[in-house]
Design a protein around this nucleic acid. Structure first.
Lengths: 108, 108
DNA sequence: CGTGTTGCTACATTAAATGTAGCAAGGACA
DNA sequence: TGTCCTTGCTACATTTAATGTAGCAACACG
């Protein structure tokens, strides 16, 4: 099946439903991690790379571009940081932190 | 099938912090989508595939195995469905739905 | 028996991510 | 001015992950 959807960034969904576009974006490698690392501080591209276990700059740059286009991240004099919208997004899954703790405890 | 090891799926993080393991798992392709599609119904493997835009059975099977090992999904007589833990996880990012609507409105 | 499910796998192809290197632009400083 | 940093960002060859298509074995109906 050919690669459809000229509406950019909605890989894995031809419906165009917002939630699908969002799940698709968040489901790309490093996206969640980047949002997480920027949750309460601005980071330069290299500081972000360090925070992300020295992930490849290629893919970090790709994800940062996507996140900037989506309006979640912006580049300032202090480096990359979440926009107001990005902070809202982060808050919607911030409870994951506590859940993750309980989850790991559960399985030893 | 050499599914990944005891230290569950902590690709992209050497810290072992629970949140990193969770972000890593959720950041794999189709993971969020699967949890989303199972949010309020059990689905057979093929129904799930249809719900996921006919994604490759190979990768769906891989993700389902990971999600079962993580304790978020189980296979019953009715097909795949979220466990109690899986429902808890889903609820932590359920607000994404409303956010996605606002997000698209903003940029569309 | 044939027909139709189910969960799941093989495998060749294609797309995405990784790792390493390095560029151009800008600031500090000597 | 020139050297030395650091910044955001890119090239590119390699490796890994995902896709698409086909099909298996097990089970349930008729």
């Amino acid at each position: 099946m050919p690669r459809q959807a000229p509406t950019r960034g909605v890989r894995g969904s031809r419906t165009g439903r917002p939630i699908m576009a969002l799940l698709d974006l968040l489901g790309r490698r490093w996206t969640l991690r980047i949002l997480w690392e920027l949750r309460d501080q601005a980071l330069t591209s290299r500081a972000l790379r360090s925070a992300c276990d020295e992930a490849s700059p290629t893919i970090l740059q790709t994800r940062l571009t996507e996140l900037r286009e989506a309006g979640f991240v912006e580049l300032t004099d202090d480096g990359y940081r979440l926009t107001g919208l990005g902070r809202e997004l982060f808050q919607t899954f911030a409870p994951l932190h506590r859940f993750a703790e309980r989850w790991t405890r559960r399985e030893g």
